[in-house]
């Protein structure tokens, strides 16, 4: 198995792990962690596939991933501010499931 393929498949694994965590865990901080891991999986796939061009890797996906990392940290910061406000307003750290709410 070639190096790019190995890393790309690991990226798929990270995406799936993140998606599982996002759906299953109720605590909102865990959901934000899970989203970040999913994002890292996508970045890993992109950069691994850029490595297929031999000696000098394709710089366009690299630039996209650097942009992506900065956008991800912006989104995470916003999500965390929302979480702090939600926690302060309700005293809880998780959202209600529709089916269980009274």
């Amino acid at each position: 198995m070639s190096t790019p393929l190995l890393y790309a498949l690991a990226g798929v694994g990270l995406c799936l792990l993140g998606l599982y965590g996002l759906i299953v865990y109720a605590h909102l901080l865990r959901k934000i962690l899970a989203l970040n891991i999913m994002g890292s999986g996508v970045f890993l796939i992109l950069v691994a596939l850029a490595r297929r061009s031999g000696d000098s890797p394709d710089p366009v996906p690299h630039a996209m991933v650097i942009t992506g990392i900065v956008v991800a940290v912006s989104a995470t910061a916003l999500a965390l501010v929302l979480l702090v406000r939600f926690s302060a307003a309700t005293g809880r750290n998780q959202l209600d499931d529709d089916e269980h709410s009274p």
């Binding site: 190096t3 950069v47 490595r51 690299h62 991933v65 650097i66 990392i69 926690s87």
Partner: peptide, 29 residues
């Protein structure tokens, strides 16, 4: 994967700053 630019950005932003943001949020919950 021959992506040193991404490695620098990841270590500083992805791990460092995101981690600091998460930890400071945890202390406010």
């Amino acid at each position: 994967l021959d992506a040193p630019d991404v490695a620098l950005a990841e270590a500083a932003i992805g791990a460092g700053l995101t981690g600091a943001l998460l930890l400071t949020t945890l202390s406010k919950l």
